[in-house]
Structure formats: structure tokens, C-alpha cells
């Protein structure tokens, strides 16, 4: 189990992780969701995946995390193929990852601070005092004060739940983080706090990050590179600076919200 992070050590840089996805396919019955996805993330890089609703962005993330088994293709994380790796190797990779789910996915039966430190305690009541103070520090990073630490997830707003989930995702100091719609349901100020936090994880701490979002302002603030998923394939990818000059009609239409 990971030791409790030392707050000073929180500022140390992570090595980041490299991801290489090749020929990834996933269908549900007759419906083809991913149809040969090829994508790469370099260590310490922030990749934002954009695309319309129902284009398979969350499915792609779940395949990378090993929550769904793809039909074919490979997902290499630092040289380990997550589609075929034995349980121990997968666990080693998961030890280095953090994930923010779209709806937060906080555990209803645990209070906020136990949720935040779950990656370190695996739900067991141990080192209560130090874990609580660590949780309070992490909550401060996402703009929440100590008063929410002892509340249950059902007692706080949806936006606060999202921020608690973000604190949980980074509690174990992962070097590879996944964010599924991190700013959905947040007001613009809170959304920018989260964007800055994600950017800081990459720029200051050296984490690799994959973010799914519909929020183009968020994408521009978070991304080093942007990829667009459409009909199960990556139809464009490039540096965020090129997003407005992608030369791809579908990307232009999407980022400008045109309905024509």
C-alpha cells in the first residue's frame, strides 16, 4: 500500500507515464463504439479528447483503465500491455493512476475525508488523524474547506462532490491521471480552479493526463495536445495551438459549436 504522502513531497515531480494505444476496437452487441483507435501520450503530457456525446470517449477511458476489455488492439502503459497483462502488473499500473469519474462516483457510505484518502487506506479505518489532515489539505487544493470533511457525499452539492472526487483522484500522487468531464456542473470560477489544478499536475508535478471534455475553454487551458474522437476513430490530433487551424471541418464545427 502507498504510504501517506508527505505534504512537502507533494511538490516533487513525477516521472509521468507513456501511453500508446493501437488499433483499439470495442463493440457492444451490434454497436461498434471504438473502431480502431490509435493514440499516444508522452510522459508529462496533457492530452484532451474531445468529441460529441456517445462517440465512445468514456468507453475509451474505461478500456485504458482496464474496466472494460477491448475486443482487439493494444494499450501499452510504460511498456505493459493492459489488455493482456496479469493481475499483478495491472495492479502496479493502477497504483500509479488516478481517475475522476464523470459523476464523481464518491462512496455514499463513507464521509468526505474517508473518500478522499480511500486510495491510501482502501476503506480501512487506519491512521485516522493523519489521514483526515491529509484529506483537509487535498480539499483545500480543490477549493473546499474543512467543514465538508466530515459530511457524507449526499450532504454536499454536485459541484462539491466533483471537487471531492478530484481530491480523491490525486491523493495517492499518481503519475498518470484521467479526468472524465472534470468541469461539468461547476460554475466558471470553480471550473477555472479545477483547470488550473489539472494544468499544475502536469506542468509542476510532471504527471501525464488524459482528459475528456466538451468544455472547449477547459480544453484550451488544460491541453498540450487535443484529439477528436468521431465514429469510433481519432479523426484529428495535434497541439492545442493548432486547434483553431486544424484543417478538419468536423473539428471546426465541433469547437465552434456550429449546427450546420
Amino acid at each position: 500500500m502507498s504510504p501517506a504522502p508527505d505534504p512537502a513531497a507533494m511538490e516533487e515531480r513525477n516521472p509521468g507515464a507513456a501511453i500508446e494505444i493501437a488499433g483499439l476496437r470495442k463493440s457492444f452487441g451490434e454497436k461498434i463504439v471504438l473502431n480502431g483507435v490509435n493514440l499516444g501520450v508522452r510522459p508529462g503530457e496533457s492530452l484532451v479528447i474531445i468529441g460529441g456525446s456517445g462517440t465512445g470517449k468514456s468507453v475509451l477511458l474505461k478500456c485504458i483503465l482496464g474496466l472494460l476489455q477491448p475486443d482487439s488492439g493494444t494499450i501499452m502503459i510504460d511498456g505493459i500491455d493492459m489488455t493482456e497483462a496479469p493481475g499483478g502488473d495491472r495492479a502496479d499500473v493502477r497504483r500509479r493512476t488516478g481517475m475522476l469519474f464523470q459523476g464523481g462516483a464518491l462512496f455514499d457510505s463513507l464521509n468526505v475525508w474517508r473518500n478522499v484518502t480511500f486510495a491510501l487506506t482502501q476503506g480501512r479505518a487506519r491512521k485516522g488523524r493523519s489521514m483526515r489532515s491529509l484529506a483537509v489539505e487535498l480539499l483545500a487544493k480543490v477549493g473546499l474547506d474543512e467543514s465538508v470533511a466530515d459530511l457524507r457525499p449526499a450532504e454536499i452539492s454536485g459541484g462539491m462532490q466533483k471537487r471531492v472526487a478530484l481530491a480523491r483522484a490525486i491523493a495517492s500522487r499518481p503519475d498518470l491521471v484521467f479526468f472524465d468531464e472534470p468541469t461539468t456542473g461547476l460554475d466558471p470560477i470553480r471550473a477555472n480552479t479545477i483547470n488550473d489544478l489539472i494544468r499544475g499536475l502536469v506542468t509542476d508535478l510532471g504527471c501525464s493526463a488524459i482528459t475528456i471534455t466538451h468544455d472547449m475553454e477547459s480544453a484550451r487551458r488544460i491541453a498540450d495536445r487535443v484529439a477528436m474522437l468521431h465514429e469510433g476513430r481519432i479523426i484529428w490530433q495535434g497541439p492545442v495551438e493548432m486547434l483553431d487551424d486544424s484543417g478538419n471541418a468536423r473539428v471546426d464545427k465541433f469547437i465552434n459549436g456550429r449546427t450546420d
Binding site: G98, L106, F107, R168
Partner: peptide
């Protein structure tokens, strides 16, 4: 349905 079970897996539990 609220992805809490998936979250458990990602938290190595």
C-alpha cells in the same frame, strides 16, 4: 450505475 464499483477498482480495491 453511479460508477462507484468502477471507482473501487481504480482505487485498487
Amino acid at each position: 450505475v453511479t460508477e462507484q464499483i468502477d471507482a473501487l477498482v481504480t482505487l485498487r480495491t
